[in-house]
Design a protein around this nucleic acid. Structure first.
Length: 641
RNA sequence: GCUGCCGUGGCUCAGUGGUAGAGCACUCCCUUGGUAAGGGAGAGGUCGUGAGUUCAAUCCUCACCGGCAGCACCA
């Protein structure tokens, strides 16, 4: 007999090997009908899986929050079953649940077409209606390999072969004869999946995520506990797509890109104003944080990049050019080696450290064509780059100050960091430095983030070859994540470029170099900012802050006086003197997301006032011109001033 | 880079084997109108590029270029 403790504290005894279903039946008929799964000692267990020992048990219904993942995982299996019924000969590989849904990777010679998705979806719903029993079976490893090979499922056989010998091989059977290798757990039958799912897209994916392997076809879907949740999700996606910075960038006339310059941005006047506003802001922040600003060359001889190590490691990503005189030059992909040159001029003393060197460095990288994405991933970009040269004993406080500064900046700009990741040492064959150096560097970054009140997620193996890094990851409107800020400890470059300082004891020492950026690239940061505000920028950031719109043409002169007065006060202002009705002007400038419309009618012209109408608000406030200037200049002050 | 889909006026999109259409924007005219579209007229496209099939290609086929999604990459 075994003792099981229920959530209410009750303890009951059962025979060993009892299943969740039997237990549920013993409690109540209706519970048994609705039971979807159990949680045993914290782990999810199939309803019909025998329980072998004592423990705590909880019976879970389909609508439990933790079942959503199971719904998605089971939906992935139904997808695989449906595909194999419709397209015999297709091999299945893996199909996990993911955020908001699931996918399944298939190997099939013919490509799936978008038109196949509704057919597959229909078949999946049929499978739900069939209410196929889903049964867990434990198989012998070799038999399982033999079985999957015999039915031509070579990927599955490969997965089993690579599982550790200690792993229990479980196969889930749907209905009579469809089987899939899976760790589980799953619902007892297909009806639990429900029908609140939808296949969404088709894509390629490499087997085991390695581009040297075969390319598979991936079908993505979304799945939810209820039809309402599904609809809410679809609406959410639709809304998010409206914030896409590429779309808003066009609508608001901020920038454009064209095919002759893939991954390169043409900034229009309004977009450039936004840029300069952000640049002025971050420059003030860096000044206050003790940075000095420098400017280093755009193009340097290849011998320089050989010395820095970029020629070996990074050449494929560099723009390289030959001169008529036979030199080979390369456009800088990053500013760090240049900064070391500035550091290296003259003899540095330990007393000078830390030196915090900043540059709004324009860099070029030949990024893979498939990775380009609006402003988020470009080939020509400007970093708010900076390098801190310091002593070992200064690393923790420098990193910690940086984390704090970065959080301040993000808060000023109104967006949330999705997460902060500490990327640790990559594989031994690619990383530089000793294990002791890595131990110490990683520990310093962790220590520093904690000092700044941040607990990073550890991203094992994601560090650069030259050192570990902290990354500030934010999310775009459509849910994709992007790295903005970062601080990286470099144990290689000072050595390669012979950076040194004179220590207290007169000896020559290598400084530690910290690469850091808060925006990351201006391009990406502006992209994120556009999406974050959906183009409705706060007054201080808005490229055009006030539109002066007269109601009739006889107040045009006064409108221009108003505009001039605001302009003199530093407000970004324009006038709309077109022969259009005020309704029309208000509609147009509201859609253009101009924060303030100053409406000028005869009344205002007579009394020397203006009527301010704020974006998103219906009312207006009528102020004297002087008062309006005061209100607007105050409202337009950057958050740090 | 890989796989799939897509490529028609500035923008959003419709359309056909017989060389094209709508709405918005644009220009001009009328209208001077108090808080999200007043009315009328006009101009604007070698249908991504190249080749092929055909009497005839924007439409079918192929290649290339570019865009989108995912994957891979992101010293």
């Amino acid at each position: 007999m075994i003792d099981l403790t229920f959530p209410d504290g009750a303890v009951r005894s059962y025979e060993q090997g009892v299943t969740g279903r039997t237990i549920a039946e013993g409690l109540s008929k209706s519970l048994a009908k609705k039971a979807a799964m159990i949680r045993l000692n914290g782990d999810l267990y199939d309803l019909d899986r025998p329980i072998e020992g004592h423990g705590t048990i909880e019976i879970l219904l389909r609508d439990a929050p933790e079942m959503l993942e199971v719904i998605r995982h089971d939906a992935a299996h139904l997808l695989a079953q449906a595909v194999q019924e419709l397209f015999p000969g297709t091999q299945v590989t893996i199909g996990p649940s993911i955020e908001d849904g699931f996918y399944y990777d298939f190997a099939r010679a013919e490509p799936f077409s978008l038109d196949d998705l509704p057919k597959i979806e229909k078949k999946m719903k049929e499978l739900v209606d069939r209410d196929e029993k889903i049964v867990r079976e434990v198989w012998d490893r070799n038999e399982a390999i033999a079985h999957f090979e015999s039915i031509g499922e070579n990927y599955k056989a490969e997965i089993i072969r690579d599982l550790p010998g200690t792993e229990t091989i479980t196969v889930y059977r749907h209905g009579d004869n469809w089987k899939d290798l899976c760790r589980g757990p799953h619902f007892p039958s297909s009806k639990f999946v429900g029908k609140a799912f939808k296949l969404t897209k088709l894509a390629g994916a490499y087997w085991r995520g390695d581009q040297n392997n075969a390319q598979l076809q991936r079908i993505y879907g979304t799945a939810w506990a209820s039809e309402e949740d599904l609809q809410a999700y679809l609406t959410r996606i639709e809304e998010a797509e409206k914030r896409d910075h590429r779309k808003i960038g066009r609508q608001m006339d901020l920038f454009h890109m064209q095919e002759e310059g893939r991954g390169m941005v043409f900034w229009h006047p309004k977009g450039w104003t936004l840029w300069q506003t952000l640049e002025a802001y971050i420059r003030r922040k860096l000044d206050k944080a003790g940075y000095v600003e420098v400017r280093t060359p755009q193009v340097l001889d290849s011998t320089f990049w050989q010395k820095s190590g970029h020629w070996d490691k990074y050449r494929a990503n560099m723009f390289v050019c030959e001169t008529v005189e036979g030199e080979t030059l390369a456009v800088k992909p990053m500013s760090c080696p240049g900064h070391v040159q500035v550091f290296n001029v003259g003899l540095r003393s330990y007393r000078e450290l830390p030196i915090r060197m900043g540059e709004f460095g324009s860099c070029h990288r030949y990024e893979p064509s498939g990775s380009l994405h609006g402003l988020m991933r470009v080939r020509a970009f400007t970093q708010d780059d900076g390098h801190i040269f310091c002593r070992e004993d200064q690393v923790v406080s420098e990193v910690s100050d940086f984390v704090t500064l970065t959080q301040q900046v993000y808060a000023d700009l109104g967006f949330e960091v999705d997460e902060i990741a500490l990327s640790t040492r990559p594989a031994p064959d690619v990383r530089a430095g000793t294990d002791e150096q890595w131990d110490q560097s990683e520990a310093m970054l962790l220590d520093a983030s904690r000092k700044a009140g941040v607990e990073p997620r550890i991203a094992p193996g994601d560090g650069a070859f030259y050192g570990p890094k902290l990354e500030f990851i934010v999310r775009d409107a459509i849910g994709r994540t992007w790295t903005c800020g970062t601080i990286q400890l470099d144990m290689v470059l000072p050595e390669r470029l012979s950076a040194e300082y004179v220590a207290e004891d007169g000896s020559r020492r290598r400084p530690i170099m910290l690469h850091r950026a808060i925006f990351g690239s201006f391009e990406r940061f502006i992209g994120i900012t556009i999406e974050n505000y959906a183009g409705k920028f706060p007054l201080w950031l808005a490229p055009l802050q006030v539109m002066v719109a007269p109601i009739t043409s006889d107040t045009n002169d006064y409108a221009q006086q108003v505009a001039q007065k605001l302009r003199n006060a530093g407000i970004r202002v324009d006038t709309d003197l077109r022969n259009e009705k005020i309704n029309y002007k208000i509609r147009e400038h509201s859609l253009a997301k101009v924060p303030v419309i100053a409406v000028i009618g005869r009344k205002e012209a007579e009394t020397g006032e203006v009527a301010l109408r704020y974006l998103g608000q219906d009312g207006q406030s009528i102020l004297s011109l002087d008062e309006a200037v005061r209100v607007l200049t105050t409202g337009a002050a950057p958050p740090d001033l």
